[in-house]
Design a protein around this nucleic acid. Structure first.
Lengths: 248, 248
DNA sequence: CGTTATTTTGACGGAATTCAACCATCGTGG
DNA sequence: CCACGATGGTTGAATTCCGTCAAAATAACG
């Protein structure tokens, strides 16, 4: 935690791990200098609240390391996750004062933050940032719509398989691995978080994970480490036969 | 239909009904001249396919009049609507060759189309268009996430009430009416389309509409005309007590 | 090692789907 | 004019998948 903080403070844009994917990806060196002036790093511990829905948000940020979730909660406590923020993803919305959703750090995290006002000014003066943000927002919209199909039309088993597919894909993309043959990854979510993502109860999640294991679609090492012997089989279980189509 | 087409051909940007909300909303008169050069109107009849998922899309467009839907379809036919396109909404994605979803005209429609290549060039030269598109995309993303809560966590009755709320709100916004006291509007969707939007079967939709009628939450005139005596009551039924929070 | 969080598993009930029949409306052509 | 199919909608009965409630097992933690 301490080394993480020190690491963050001494970080330069040049060697930033998300440099090529984040909102700053299109910036040239001049623009990076501008960004550098208004950026600051912030660290969060696993379980910490980053923002409450309705709260004032005076900054926007890029996820540098770690995982966060966006959730909506109804008065009676029913919870739906509406976004999973991974490294390079953007947090917050320019042009809006308050947070729309709860943002929770699922793991220890580092954010690269920008005070909102200066960032908005920078956005209007350097089109590269707005361009990249538009691109990222369009991708997120596609992902959200893909997720609407999962929530609205898939069975519990298909939902679990879909989630595993997505995490596997993102993991592979991050590590430049192929999604063929045997694949291995860690689940960054508890059963409850999976349930909130999938619109299920945690009991149903547990049962369906067990069922996929029983049927040889996946193997488990501990509760969180997943081994997928045949990725095509998993995709079939997810109902995304053929082309599939999940983004990043 | 004929008068509609003629109407479309003679249309000038100045008196366009969606001028202040569409992707061109921020444009000054010079920029409108540029847009004018590459725009053309296209009419569709109710039920017509505007684009098939996977097909080449050589234009983007704004909805001028009418309603269209975005849908995803699984191999076995399960269908989920992922977007409802109303006047001023944007169709298509700059920087992408093919359509991601099926786009279907639900009513007779007029689109204001732009060939994609010139539009993309215009986007990079006139930041006002990209700015507005970013804003609209962020709004759509919020709407999609709101919908994820509906799909994932609400009961059938709440889903129906939520849909009615949204349509009522959009209708009120379009006609500059208040959402208080008695509200009246037409359902632009069949029971099946509602089911595809809500992740239900059409039978369940029918039953829950009847139940809301039986309980006095709504009244019906014919199958499609809805009367809401008390909008707050409807919102309560939707589970959006208090602040609510649906965007339009 | 005890305490707490997380997960698994079982039994049961209920909300929504499935399958099926029936009704209303509308345009068409005999 | 009315029989007719076609389309969209309603309603009923049986089934099923998932949620709820409960308890036990496992892992995490000070």
């Amino acid at each position: 935690m301490l080394s993480e903080a020190k690491f963050a403070e001494t970080r330069q844009c040049g060697d930033c791990p998300i440099r090529h994917r984040a909102v700053c990806a299109r910036c040239d060196s001049d623009e990076l200098v501008q960004l550098d002036k208004i950026k600051f790093y912030r660290n969060y511990e696993a379980g910490q609240m980053i923002a409450w829905a309705g709260d004032q948000m005076d900054f926007v940020a890029s996820v540098v390391t770690g995982i966060a979730t966006l959730t909506q909660v109804m008065e009676d406590g029913r919870t739906q996750m509406v976004g999973l923020l991974l490294p390079s993803d953007f947090v917050g919305r320019p042009g809006r004062e308050t947070a729309t959703y709860n943002v929770v750090a699922t793991s220890d995290m580092t954010l690269c933050c920008f005070r909102k006002k200066p960032f908005e000014q920078l956005m209007s003066s350097t089109p590269h940032i707005a361009q990249r943000l538009l691109e990222m927002t369009l991708d997120e919209l596609d992902a959200a719509r893909e997720w609407m199909l999962v929530l609205g039309r898939k069975t519990a088993r298909e939902k679990i398989a879909s989630l595993l597919c997505i995490i596997a894909r993102r993991n592979a993309a991050l590590q430049m691995l192929a999604t063929e043959g045997e694949i291995t990854f860690d689940l960054p979510l508890t059963r409850e978080a999976m349930a909130d993502y999938l619109g299920l109860t945690l009991e149903t999640v547990s049962r369906q994970v067990s069922a996929l294991k029983r049927d040889g679609v996946i193997r488990l090492e501990g509760k969180r480490h997943i081994i997928v012997p045949d990725f095509d089989r998993l995709m079939q279980e997810a109902g995304d036969d053929g082309d599939g189509g999940f983004l990043n």
